[in-house]
Design a protein around this nucleic acid. Structure first.
Lengths: 210, 210
DNA sequence: TTGACGGCTACACGGGCGTGTAGTTCACTA
DNA sequence: TAGTGAACTACACGCCCGTGTAGCCGTCAA
């Protein structure tokens, strides 16, 4: 995956450089000229191979997803249901790929990536001893929360003074998230209390409505 | 806050329009021409009042934060420590302001907004009966998770078929998040197991390292 | 040897962006 | 009443973006 690898075909180098830059800056801010430069080719060749910037993005989507499942199957065997965050904490390439996929998910017009995450969440819910009152909302928020760790890695890195892109940094983040998901932040009473406070606030707002 | 309000000064209308558009599209994709158009003024006037796009953003930051504390104090009294998400679920203006602040936090070069959230998180931790092993990482991830609900509202809205911008939609999301933070997703054993799996995977990766 | 074709480059085009500048209107004041 | 400055507009500049086009160079089959 390193862009310094000159053995790869130009097409592969472009694709790898694109995934790197898309992951670093986001889709829109990453320009095809910068991608071409990092790949060591002209920007025209990028067009020649992928047609357009969006075509390149689709190729990256496809490649990143297939590569992620390949890594998962190689590390955990087929049929394994593993959190992408765990792989990313362990495997450097998975980290990059997952960062890219999250960026793509954020800026894409379609929600196909999010839909896929929802679907695999539903089968997970079936095997779990959870029965949330609003399963879809529960899953959607949960997915958003997991994604957020990748989305805000720059801010988190700066605040914690450690690069969350590195396996070590990401592992630190992952440990914290496991802690969050293990020790409940609110007791059941506090949860009900929060919901009641919410409902009572609604009434007061409807009365004033600045 | 409505941009249809012609009673406000042009400066206020520009600022409100900017917050709306910044919140809708993000800072970079929102152009000063579109902001000026929504405010019903020329783009030059925007420059006249705020100097530059970045100056406008800073003015919006300042305004949004002061307005948020004003709303919080009006609804809950001073010295109240409330989750912004709760206010957003109840108060339409707070929803917009919080959406803007999250966008700004994501795209800003400085982490001052994130730092502020960390600081208020630390005082919360002191009064809580939590003692996470890595408090800073715990808080950073927690803040990222809360923010994610605003960050991914477009995707969540599309997946759930309901606009999360509306108080009703956001309330649905908030209920789900309360559920997540109340019922632990992992038992303590599962948590330890996950950490052990993590550590064992590290060894296997260091051995192969593709 | 020739011709065709894919890989590849150089460069120009059109558009949208933030920014800069000159000028107009208008309320207030000395 | 003349002057002064703030509010506001119109318009042009320069930059960078994705895209389009023309052409070069090597390989390989006929």
């Amino acid at each position: 995956m390193s862009s310094a690898n000159g053995d790869l075909t130009a097409r592969a180098r472009i694709r790898d450089a694109a995934i790197e830059l898309f992951a670093e800056r986001g889709i829109a801010p990453a320009t095809i000229r910068d991608i071409a430069e990092r790949a060591g080719v002209s920007s025209g060749l990028l067009r020649h191979h992928f047609g357009s910037k969006d075509g390149l993005r689709e190729a990256c989507d496809e490649y990143a997803m297939s590569k992620m499942t390949e890594i998962r199957e190689r590390m955990l065997g087929p049929n394994a249901m593993a959190d992408p965050a765990i792989l990313a904490a362990v495997h450097p390439a998975a980290m990059l790929l997952q960062s890219y996929l999250v960026r793509s998910m954020m800026e894409a017009s379609s929600t196909s990536l999010f839909d896929a995450a929802m679907e695999s969440g539903r089968v997970w819910l079936q095997h779990a001893d959870h029965h949330p009152g609003d399963p879809d909302a529960y899953l959607a928020v949960l997915i958003a929360m997991k994604i957020s760790m990748f989305l805000m890695r720059d801010q988190i890195s700066q605040v914690l003074g450690q690069d969350m892109t590195t396996p070590a940094g990401h592992r630190r983040m992952l440990r914290a998230s496991i802690e969050i998901f293990t020790l409940p932040m609110l007791t059941t009473e506090q949860g009900e209390q929060a919901l009641k406070a919410l409902d009572s606030l609604i009434g007061s707002t409807e009365r004033e409505q600045s």
